[in-house]
């Protein structure tokens, strides 16, 4: 009973340390999860649109004419590998191994950049072969879907490089490893979305 009149915890609840939250998950992490589930519907809408318009273009070029599966497989693989280096970066900072953290986080960013470079190359190739935003419904739904994904990857790269910069200035200690974890959640999400896109957009054979 007396407990009720005792002074009770007054920690800064807005900080990043989750030990005083009601669910045990920190605020930022929970927020990131909700944000990412919201993003699922965002990408879902564009993916559904792409699928709906498969094979409905009234004129070419069609996916078959432009896709270069081996090339995109390689860039997709590189993006996937960046998830691995992201995991390594997080593990490194949690151990307090800042040198390795910087290596892995930069590697993750560079893999991401490679993927984006590949996407730019792919877009220009397609454009040269006569596929633009306005050519047909395939062009519209393809470019907007993959373009928005590319924008997400770009934001992620800037985020990773910012973390790297903070670390170089010595402002990213072990106690801040959750920041890396949150960036990692975002990064893995963007990768997973790409796996879905790569499967349904590139790999499932077009109907005609």
């Amino acid at each position: 009973m007396t407990q009720a009149t005792l002074p009770v915890p007054q920690e800064g609840h807005h900080d990043d340390h989750g030990h005083d939250t009601a669910t045990g998950t920190t605020n930022t992490k929970l927020a990131m999860w909700v944000f990412l589930s919201s993003e699922c519907l965002f990408f879902g809408a564009f993916i559904a649109t792409y699928l709906l318009y498969r094979g409905r273009s009234v004129k070419g070029p069609t996916p078959r004419d432009v896709y270069n599966i081996p090339f995109t497989s390689v860039t997709s693989f590189i993006l996937l590998m960046s998830s691995l280096t992201m995991v390594l970066a997080l593990a490194a900072i949690q151990r307090g191994d800042h040198r390795r953290f910087r290596v892995w986080i930069i590697a993750t960013g560079l893999f991401g950049l490679t993927f984006i470079a590949g996407q730019i190359y792919e877009f220009t190739e397609f454009y040269r072969e006569g596929l633009s935003l306005s050519t047909n419904v395939f062009g519209s739904s393809f470019f907007v879907l993959t373009g928005i994904h590319g924008a997400h990857v770009t934001v992620g790269i800037i985020w990773l490089l910012s973390l790297w910069g903070l670390s170089m200035q010595g402002k990213l200690g072990v106690q801040h490893s959750e920041r890396v974890e949150i960036a990692g959640l975002y990064w893995h999400f963007v990768d997973v979305v790409w796996i879905v896109i790569f499967t349904v957009v590139y790999l499932i054979p077009p109907q005609k």
Binding site: T49, Y53, R56, V58, S134, N136, V137, S140
Partner: peptide
């Protein structure tokens, strides 16, 4: 995008 950049999402004539 349809309105400003010529995409065909909702243009029935192009299969939208």
């Amino acid at each position: 995008f349809d309105r400003n950049y010529g995409t065909n999402f909702f243009q029935a004539a192009s299969g939208g």
